[in-house]
């Protein structure tokens, strides 16, 4: 049997298709980002995202096959994201995938988008082996996961309010840095002092693996409003750096504490916010201190992509988890609802 899986991902604003061999080797990874389309609106507009997915998905799939140098006959199966995400966006990828698989008589598996992100580190680091702890941190999610094996997850903690990436977006909006907020704050923070302002780090004594970013978001808002009322300018670089430090410190500390508690040796960080330079730097320093190996995917695999979906799909297919013809999108899908 061939080891090649075609992956399809349309859960948010990236239209993506990829071919992965044996769950580990990327043969092609095509990502069409719609970010410029959504920029004027300060965030992803669901209907616009869906309209662009339906326009572009098939040529992108073709490009993924062509670049991998494979034809339909070479494939062992297909994998598609069925949640979590925007329902209208998910449905486009799901409908295309189901029709392709049906017509080519290929086995199809539905993949959880969050599970996909965890697999981005398998793609980047061949030596990564469960058990390990993974932090999935993006615009929609902040999940701390104990990965016990392929398809076996224990959710250790999650955000109680805003996702980390969402806090970046909202603070960037307040500071007038535009959308998407993550890269904008990352860039602005480079010129600022992360110790300039002491923004709060939420402590949740009853749930040490949980996160909360609503408080720090409101603290930045308060700081901004107070200065505006007094007619004072704020130093955007200092605010960005201090806010970023508050978020990053909490992410790193909770993750490392969880890794120690779970007695693992590897920590895999993934999702859009994993591209943040301050997060990478602090993980590198603290990870070394704690004697843990910290793994990040390259930026191209931090963003939403289909290679990670194909990788996760490969293992799900091996486990025999085939998608039924009536598979539906599950916008609220979580890692432990599988």
């Amino acid at each position: 049997m061939s080891q090649l899986i075609l992956g399809i991902e349309t859960s948010c604003d990236e239209t993506a298709a990829a071919v992965v061999a044996g769950g580990r080797r990327i043969r092609s990874n095509i990502i069409f980002s719609q970010i410029k389309l959504h920029q004027p609106f300060g965030g992803v507009v669901p209907e616009l995202a869906s309209r662009n997915h339906i326009k572009n998905i098939n040529p992108i799939i073709q490009e993924a096959l062509d670049q991998a140098g494979v034809t339909w006959e070479d494939l062992a199966g297909m994998a598609v994201t069925y949640g979590p995400g925007l329902v209208g966006a998910l449905l486009v990828g799901l409908a295309v995938a189901k029709a392709l698989a049906f017509a080519r008589r290929l086995p199809l598996v539905g993949v959880n988008h969050l599970e996909g992100h965890i697999y981005s580190n398998y793609l980047a680091h061949p030596h990564l082996k469960p058990p390990f702890v993974s932090l999935v941190v993006s615009g929609g999610h902040t999940d701390l996961v104990h990965v016990l094996g392929h398809g076996q997850y224990c959710l250790l903690g999650q955000t109680r309010d805003d996702a980390a990436g969402e806090a970046f977006d909202k603070v960037a909006r307040v500071l007038g840095l535009g959308y998407p907020g993550g890269p904008a704050i990352d860039a602005a923070a480079r010129e600022g002092n992360p110790r300039a302002i002491d923004f709060p780090r939420a402590i949740l004594p009853d749930a040490p693996a949980d996160f909360s970013f609503s408080g720090v978001k409101t603290a930045v808002l308060n700081y901004h409003n107070q200065h505006r009322q007094r007619g004072q300018d704020i130093n955007v670089a200092h605010v960005a750096a201090s806010f970023q430090a508050a978020v990053v410190e909490v992410l790193v500390e909770r993750t490392l504490a969880a890794a120690v508690k779970c007695e693992v040796e590897q920590v895999a960080v993934c999702g859009g916010v994993a591209a943040n330079t301050a997060l990478r730097e602090l993980f590198r320093i603290r990870g070394a201190e704690a004697g843990l190996e910290i793994l990040f995917p390259p930026p191209i695999l931090c963003t939403d992509n289909a290679a990670m979906i194909a990788a996760a799909g490969y293992y799900r297919l091996q486990a025999g988890c085939l998608a039924p013809l009536d598979l539906n999108a599950v916008p609220n899908l979580s890692l432990d609802s599988r």
Binding site: I57, W72, V92, V96, K98, A99, L100, A103
Partner: peptide
């Protein structure tokens, strides 16, 4: 999307 999938496949 379903029609396109069939046509492409």
């Amino acid at each position: 999307a379903t029609g396109k999938g069939f046509a492409q496949a």
